[in-house]
Design a binder for these strands. Structure first.
Lengths: 219, 219
DNA sequence: AACCAGGCTGCATTGAATGCAGACTTGCAT
DNA sequence: ATGCAAGTCTGCATTCAATGCAGCCTGGTT
């Protein structure tokens, strides 16, 4: 057979091996997510996932450390988007303002960067047991943000508390926005919630109205 | 045997059954923590824990949902201390200032309320696999803080983002302080780290020095 | 004393997760 | 093309966490 003259696919940068690996990983992630959404997280065995992806059970564990990692699609960037966006903000901008802009930028690109994001959120809503792992996956995310803040303020991530505290607050704001988003509306409004949540940080955590008065305020 | 005339122990409010239950729970928690510290978390089977506590394996699962819950001592208050302390602060105080005071108060009482706290921190440091579960256990904690803030500002926890965002920021500050504490010193200095972390929040998340200047600052 | 609810236990089962060793595929150099 | 080396996939065996069930026993009640 003389197929050799053709270039069957655009080769990009990877070899066949890496391409297959990537395919297998995607197949497992997608199958895991789909099955978990259809039948419920604990009603799906790893065996079922591997059969859907047409690999052996043992292979599954070559790609993911646990079933949770597979359905949540973990083991990846972990907020590289926000970190890049943060690096792109002007140096003079106040840290929190820069963070706000970076997060909103990320939210805008979310759909294309993470096409499965909506489904994952739905899955977590339906299976709260997944929440711990999801939340803890934000740790790496927070770390990257802290590094970005440190670079921008000249602090040391290891010894100064400032970058880590700001990063934790920002990550918390995002988490809250996502939670609200889960209970209220669809993906489209994440930007709005995110914006509102960051307003609180930008305002310096002061109450919504009449911050100088003494009595409790209505929001 | 005529023990009936005596009152062998101060009875308080519980009957023998509840007392035994409490004892068993404590025995399991303590045994789990001790064994995990001695041999490493994954080198300790639930069977070993139950043998040390002298109950059956099946009984273990009547008290805890998982091995992690046992070693981390979960299934309890979840920040009742901070919530109470927060409720005790004057109403006119700014939310963040009140939170700061409440957290420091809790830290001061930590030793007596949670005598095993230091050991648990050491365990988590030695076994980072426990971190996810520990972090996620803060969720209930955060919720209570959010409710306290909501009550104090007249917001609604469900619909307003403010209480949740502030609670997330505060919980994050505590988490960061604990992490720093883990890597640097012993329990005694948690108060200091906590104080520094909350300074960042009280300051409105502005950088450590020269917040009005434009260039990056040294901390 | 007798009854009953609730806790403890053993047994069996499922399924996640890991180590190991052999077979196969891929990439590369000859 | 051919052979080699590295990396992958796979089956098998094993350990152990976790759950359901059914029976026994203990503590509290009348």
């Amino acid at each position: 057979m003389q197929y050799s003259a053709y270039t069957p696919r655009v080769q990009e940068t990877q070899g066949r091996r890496d391409r297959k690996k990537s395919d297998t990983r995607d197949a497992l992630r997608i199958a895991a997510l789909r099955l978990a959404l259809e039948h419920g997280y604990d009603n799906v065995t790893i065996e079922a996932i591997t059969e859907a992806a047409d690999v052996s059970v043992r292979t599954f564990f070559n790609y993911f450390d646990s079933k949770e990692d597979a359905v949540l699609g973990l083991g990846y960037d972990g907020g590289a988007g926000v970190a890049d966006a943060l690096a792109g903000r002007p140096a003079g901008e106040a840290p929190v303002v820069a963070l706000r802009a970076a997060f909103l930028e990320m939210a805008a690109n979310l759909a294309e960067r993470q096409p499965l994001w909506g489904q994952r959120m739905a899955l977590v809503r339906a299976n709260p047991q997944l929440l711990p792992r999801l939340i803890s996956s934000f740790a790496a995310f927070e770390r990257r943000i802290a590094e970005g803040i440190a670079a921008r303020t000249g602090c040391d991530v290891e010894t100064d508390l400032y970058p880590s505290v700001v990063a934790a607050a920002a990550a918390g704001a995002m988490r809250v926005a996502m939670a609200q988003c889960r209970f209220r509306a669809d993906e489209v409004t994440l930007t709005e919630f995110l914006s509102s949540a960051f307003d609180v940080l930008v305002r310096g955590l002061t109450p919504p109205e009449a911050s100088t008065k003494t009595g409790p305020t209505t929001c």
